[in-house]
Write a protein that binds this DNA or RNA. Structure first.
Lengths: 218, 218
DNA sequence: AGAACTGACTTTACACTGACAACTTGACAC
DNA sequence: GTGTCAAGTTGTCAGTGTAAAGTCAGTTCT
């Protein structure tokens, strides 16, 4: 019952494959889990299917993650790790706070599209252990990038701004976009409109959001 | 294999309970399903548990809904029906388009809190049949209220506005809020801040969104 | 009235699942 | 070597979704 929460070490890089010890089974299992979720959706997730794909026995995952919740929690943590990294990288060289906020929006949704399985799991309190310290820490780390940037926007233009509220709105908008985007595409198809791509949605959203945030000056 | 999609008729109101025929089993099953999802979360949903709560055999749901997806789809349709109704009622007596938009935000999130199970299901393409005509129709009906209102806001103030984009943003923000709210509460608790209640979030969100929408005049 | 039909369920059956306990395998320390 | 321990295995159990066949009650036809 090891508590392995998303250690990113690719230890024992060349795994001979017939070996009894896998080398890095936890990561392989996370990968397989992400695969299953991406293909079949979280609603048809199965621990045994994950084990099968990783080429180990059905009980092997339990050894590393305890139970299903353990594995999914670990996946969520990895998702937050990725996100925090992407956001940090995306904002790195940018001075203007507003440009940074746009970059964050882009980074958030980009991460969501690149790791759809992770993102489907990150806020699902019913399948994840929200009290896990690793989970909370990683989430906090990612969120901090956003709050800091919103704060900077407010400070740079001397705005009358509830930073927390504005940050939560940006976050909600991007999360909602991630969840509803397929639905939006379908609706536009049905209406005969050309599909608006994700990039365009992000840009449009952030523009309106920034206008809203900037609206009230001291 | 009846295709019973959320008929709201409370037919045979007084059901003697020992009768062989239930009276309105489809509705009872939807209710039980909502209960299970609310209590245990969609991740621990079980068709047999639903049947147990409705007091029927485990195979009874199949007769009305085919399979799990069928039942959950029906629940989603009912959710959209509720939502469309609430939004229509909420905007009924209001003339000012902006006030109407605020009322919609309030109505949306209120519905989400009142029917959490329905809302957890409505956009989950992996557990719901998105091609179901009833599903699409009900969704369209609810969405139309929002788009119309956003259009009215734009027209009233002669704004340079991509109506579809703005509507999608409002929708995303509210959906995101629904999904992330528990997380926001936990974070504020952890930071020692007083919990911001949902009402306040909605008001704050809509204020910023409206400011953003109004920002660009012709 | 009785017979035939149909919809609403129940019973039975099966393959699959998550979780647990008990066992085996390999690697490393001494 | 022996001991130890993490990393897997096999086996088992109750619970699950779905399909098929059986049973019951009400309606309709004659």
């Amino acid at each position: 019952m090891t508590s392995d929460t998303a250690t990113t070490n690719a230890a024992a890089a060349a795994a001979p494959a017939e070996r009894y010890h896998h080398g890095d089974l936890p990561n392989a299992l996370r990968g397989a889990a992400a695969e299953v979720i991406t293909e079949k959706g979280l609603g048809h997730f199965s621990l045994r299917e994950v084990a099968r794909r990783a080429g180990v026995s059905h009980a092997a995952p339990a050894h590393h993650f305890g139970d299903t919740t353990g594995l999914l929690t670990s996946l969520a943590v990895q998702g937050f790790d990725h996100l925090a990294q992407v956001l940090a990288d995306a904002t790195a060289g940018i001075d203007d706070p507003e440009d940074r906020l746009v970059a964050i929006g882009r980074g958030y949704v980009e991460t969501g599209m690149r790791y759809p399985a992770h993102c489907q799991v990150m806020f699902r309190a019913d399948v994840v252990d929200c009290d896990d310290p690793g989970y909370q820490e990683a989430g906090e780390r990612a969120y901090a990038v956003l709050v800091d940037t919103v704060r900077a926007v407010g400070a740079a233009e001397n705005l009358d701004l509830d930073v927390d509220m504005a940050a939560d709105l940006c976050w909600s908008a991007m999360q909602g976009l991630l969840e509803l985007y397929p639905n939006m595409v379908r609706r536009r198809e049905a209406s005969g409109l050309p599909p608006r791509d994700l990039e365009e949605s992000i840009t449009g959203f952030t523009r309106i959001l920034l206008d809203g945030i900037r609206a009230r000056r001291d």
